[in-house]
Amino acid sequence: MHLPDGLVSAPLAGAGLTVSAILTVWAARSLRADELPRLSMVTSALFVGSLFHIPLMGTSVHFTLVGLAGILLGRRSFLSVAVAVLFQFVFFRHGGLAVWGLNTLHMGLGALAGAYAFARFRGLGLRWAPFAAGWVSAVVKVGAFSGTLLLADFPAAAAATVLVAHGPVIALEGLLIGLVVSGLQRAKAGDIIDASKNR
């Protein structure tokens, strides 16, 4: 799910960086100091979240938990994703520095889509709304990644294979996020979820 350096052209990487920078500034606007602990906790979860992996069809796919970030942080999730992607590069050499913007954009859009979907489907209850948010976030994230592959002149078959290979992960990520949010509710930690509503 992370593009490495050397696969996409400089203009495409630059465009990704520009859009990500704008969205990161928007996400960080009027950030208060008391939001930092929550932000760092969720960023830590994203940082290690990509270590869930599933070998599949000759390649390997993994969870990102960006939908969870969207549910818990709202628009701040884009800032959280930007930091997590940078840390994943620094600590795991996961992705690349030149394509940090593109990788942030793929996952950040997924997180924002998750936040939107969670608000939209909140009426379904805390069992199905997180699942829907996780599912939508994963679809947007994988769709953005596949779109970038197409823009980078990869064959359409490669983009389609990425979508197919991530199909089970999309479903599982929705399930995982549903379980996590239900678990938080059961642990009477619903304040974590509700606190994201005003952001």
């Binding site: 929550r38 906790m41 979860a45 290690v48 938080l184 642990a187 304040d191």
Partner: peptide
């Protein structure tokens, strides 16, 4: 309660 999030992730 926030620690729950990180603990769940550390399982992986």
């Amino acid at each position: 309660s926030l620690c729950v999030i990180v603990l769940l992730s550390l399982v992986s």
